[in-house]
């Protein structure tokens, strides 16, 4: 029996999720509520960026075009990005950042844990390293969800608002992909179960909202991604072909 080939598009999706999330996380450095949090969010962003780099490099190998991590990060337009909408929207409110991280890191942790025993040994290697990193991200988001949910009246309200704002974008994480080594649809119960426990312990409520239509995995994005990429890519694109 031959080992099934991992579709490059699946790897690219995970890479773009991590890259776009890292780009948003980097905004917090020098803007966090306290100095310890500048350190923590920088740490999380750095982990995500490291995952993105490994996955982009591998996606380039899988597609066989010789594109490097930088070619893929800097030289694709938004229609070629494959990340979910959850990670691409602006996040300048700490509650939103925590709500989003709680969902995203829990999803990553389930996915990476499953991929760590994949027959695709390269992917298994990346996932095996990443699963340890995201365990910390989940814990960080969990602790802040508890503090904000069960802190002051204001923080309770703001954290609930943040969950409400993020929730329409949760379902896109579980869009079925039968060709993937792990079909994200199979993770739904585990991820929502874990997140739901944290939300309840924080005296908050899991929102009941209609999911957004999504489309990130097909290259259909919100208007926000174009602006994020314009900032991220402009210097690299202004000097084609040079070394940095």
């Amino acid at each position: 029996m031959t080992t099934p080939v991992t579709p490059a598009g699946f790897v690219l999706g995970l890479a773009d999720d991590a890259l776009v999330s890292a780009q948003r996380m980097g905004w917090w450095i020098s803007r966090a509520p306290e100095l310890e949090e500048d350190l923590a969010l920088a740490n999380i962003g750095l982990d995500q960026l490291g995952q993105a780099r490994a996955l982009l490099t591998y996606a380039g190998e899988l597609e066989g075009t010789g594109r490097t991590e930088d070619d893929l990060a800097y030289l694709r337009d938004d229609r070629d990005f494959r990340n979910v909408w959850l990670v691409e929207r602006p996040q300048t409110d700490f509650g939103v950042t925590i709500a989003r991280l709680l969902v995203f890191a829990t999803w990553q942790s389930e996915l990476y844990a499953a991929l760590a025993s994949s027959a695709d040994l390269t992917l298994a290697g990346v996932a095996g390293k990443a699963v340890k990193e995201v365990a910390y991200h989940v814990d960080h988001a969990r602790l802040w969800t508890l503090r904000l949910g069960d802190g002051t009246e204001e923080s309770h309200r703001r954290m609930q608002d943040a969950l409400d704002a993020e929730w329409p974008y949760v379902e896109e994480l579980f869009v079925a992909d039968p060709d993937a080594p792990i079909d994200p649809a199979t993770l739904r119960d585990a991820v929502l179960g874990r997140v739901g426990e944290v939300v309840a312990a924080a005296t908050l409520t899991v929102p009941e909202v209609a999911p957004s239509v999504g489309g990130g995995r097909r290259g259909l994005h919100t208007e926000h991604l174009g602006h994020l990429l314009a900032g991220m890519q402009h210097l690299h694109r202004s000097h084609p072909g040079v070394t940095w």
Partner: peptide
């Protein structure tokens, strides 16, 4: 940080500011 011209430079810069 948001505009670093390669992902390697971005990682180094984030770590430095951290």
């Amino acid at each position: 940080i948001s505009r670093a011209p390669s992902l390697r430079r971005k990682a180094i810069l984030m770590a430095k500011v951290q």
